[in-house]
Write a protein that binds this DNA or RNA. Structure first.
Lengths: 375, 375
DNA sequence: GCCCCTTATGGTAGCGCTACCATTATCTTA
DNA sequence: TAAGATAATGGTAGCGCTACCATAAGGGGC
């Protein structure tokens, strides 16, 4: 550009009346993007591009930058990033009175991921889905990029509608009845229930009791359907007496177990839709002088801490809640980033694999105790 | 490069030498400190002073500023704050395999407070205190202002020494044996145990069993001491058979309960040092055909989710874990702020009040000692 | 050859706040 | 009363990064 301009600038840069030069305010000498740029012999801008995975960078340059980053052990300053980026990623975590073991996993997953991508987590408990609405409004005042909704909130249409109205995206953790989330992470509850039921059948059981979860939650239906499907596939007749309603709580499991165990021809195995209810089944069995698993097999679902706390430890289906929440946080980040550029309503979905965890609460039916039944 | 090009540009835009004026990058029109300053008719600097509670601001001015903040519904931009402040508050949360119910409360407390003061939480699990050391080193690479240490980490001198070496402060959540933390939050475990024991005595029990917690943790000692003190104060003889060792786990509670319940003259009440062990006592009692609380009173400690999950619900001591962790986060913030200015090694301590929660697992001893058998 | 278009890169101006100094009014104290 | 100390406030330059534009360097298509 014009040399004249430069000359002028130079003359003013003698600082006739401005403040005296100050020392840099940087206290800890953490490398900045400029240091990397110098090392990689390019501009800070190019470094920024590499870091953010943008296109339009020559492969050669990219590698140089990555090398420099490695060498300097550089990590970008989160504060500067979100300040310059103009947008702060705030994520609302809402939950409706879940079990402690669920919650701790849920929070850990969110926390780990949020820490990585520098998102702010706003945690809110609400007793009912209706109570969630004002909380969401309040959170939204400060600007919220998205909400993470575990069941039963993701089964509630009003909650989702409000999220949309507030311009936030909603990610369901677990299956949801309500339509219109911008994404969801879940395991295949149906297949998992099929597998577990098949496992129990494989042990030789034929009278298998089932305790259904909370009726409002879609996961309950799916798990039940899995049980039915596996029974049918094994050619076993389904005795409706053996299928009882629960509500995912320990208390409800107690009642359901009482019902199943007092049946004239009681089941030799019980598959509960979650671990809390399975624990309740074991407690009830013990109170009725039944040994687990000798007299009765008990299996759970979720693999919460409960499953490995109680004795005997539960055979259950592991649902990787931590990974699921982490994924949800990442999804919100992706979505709100993409929103800034293109406005297409992408929907992110992920089915995370589950695992069948075999522990000590299952066994083949004992010949002596078990009422013999038709093959 | 050419002046030609520039000349052209000059003709198209009024700006002679600089780039053309850009639109502000601010997307959401959240009020900034400058807006507040304008409204309060002072400089942004003064507003900053008011916000940060610094001195040297006239009361009159302060009020004007606060009014303006209120009117504009201003809230400071966290990113800008930590960028300009030069220091990022990073807090390491370490825990050693705690129960899920403890953890969820622990995390919630930390999360809520951290969100308020814009601290970054780094969560790490470690199986043993020794395993914590490398994790701490690693966390420290990115710069850590402080660590929050629940038991048993706060009982480990090596952990504390390392924290000091890394230039981070350490806050114990719960009593710790190791010396040298920069602060601690806890309840008065001794007094709480005294109260609970006195409560049980007040119901009419005289043979009261006690299950000790993990021996390495100071809380265990304190609770035991409380039990002894209350027994002594009531003039009750302490039968050493009635005091058995546990390790805070459900499993250890099972063994301890078995021991206590198979005593020739078994206790009419058992006070376990935490809820998990108390739950194990109840399970064992049930397996031995004893009703709770009719045949035996069982009390716990901590009031974790377990306490109100099981049946009957536990009478226990509520330890407000959430508040405690929140306090710890705030303490780290205070300390590292004060460190920047004066370097005095302030130690922050807080004793948070506990509550005795009476639920359904306690009752007066039944008059006939053992014979009551159920059908 | 010219023009345009794409791709790779650089320069600069903020993002909103606070540290640091400068400045002015308000007292003290020699 | 002048000189200094103190209190209250203002101005400015970053903090480290990214958005936005500008520029330069390579292709085709006419």
């Amino acid at each position: 550009m014009g040399s004249a301009v430069y000359a002028m600038q130079m003359s003013t840069s003698v600082q006739p009346k401005t403040h005296k030069r100050r020392a840099s305010r940087r206290s800890n000498a953490a490398p900045t993007i400029a240091d990397v740029a110098r090392a990689a012999q390019c501009s800070p801008m190019t470094v920024s591009r590499v870091i953010n995975g943008e296109g339009n960078v020559r492969e050669e340059t990219r590698i140089q930058v990555l090398d420099a980053i490695e060498k300097l052990n550089y990590s970008p300053n989160r504060a500067a990033r979100s300040l310059a980026g103009g947008e702060q990623l705030r994520i609302g975590l809402l939950f409706d009175n879940p079990s402690a073991s669920y919650l701790s996993e849920f929070l850990r997953g969110a926390l780990e991921e949020a820490s990585k991508i520098d998102a702010h987590l706003e945690v809110q408990t609400c007793e009912t889905p209706e109570a969630a609405l004002p909380l969401m409004r309040k959170l939204s005042e400060g600007g919220i990029s998205g909400f993470i909704l575990p069941p039963p909130l993701c089964d509630d249409q009003d909650v989702l509608d409000l999220a949309k109205e507030l311009g936030a995206c909603a990610i369901a953790v677990g299956p949801g009845k309500a339509m219109g989330t911008q994404g969801s992470v879940m395991i295949d509850d149906f297949e998992a229930a099929v597998d577990m039921t098949a496992h129990i059948i494989g042990l030789g059981h034929t009278r298998i009791g089932f305790i259904i979860g909370k009726p409002e939650q879609l996961a309950s239906e799916r798990r039940l359907a899995g049980y039915y499907a596996a029974m049918k596939q094994a050619g076993l007749e389904i005795d409706e007496e053996l299928v009882v309603q629960g509500r995912f709580t320990y208390r409800s499991g107690l009642a359901a177990a009482e019902k199943l165990l007092s049946l004239p021809e009681r089941p030799t195995a019980i598959f509960a839709s979650n671990d809390d209810m399975a624990a309740a089944v074991i407690a009830t069995a013990h109170r009725n002088h039944l040994d687990v698993p000798t007299d009765i097999t008990v299996c759970g679902f979720d693999d919460t801490a409960m499953a490995s706390t109680i004795w005997p430890e539960l055979t259950t289906v592991r649902q990787p809640i931590r990974e699921m929440t982490a994924w949800a946080v990442a999804a919100i980040a992706r979505i709100s980033r993409s929103r800034r550029t293109d406005d297409k309503g992408t929907v992110e979905k992920s089915i995370i694999p589950y695992t069948l965890i075999r522990r000590d609460s299952d066994a083949a039916p004992s010949l002596a105790r078990s009422p013999r039944t038709e093959p």
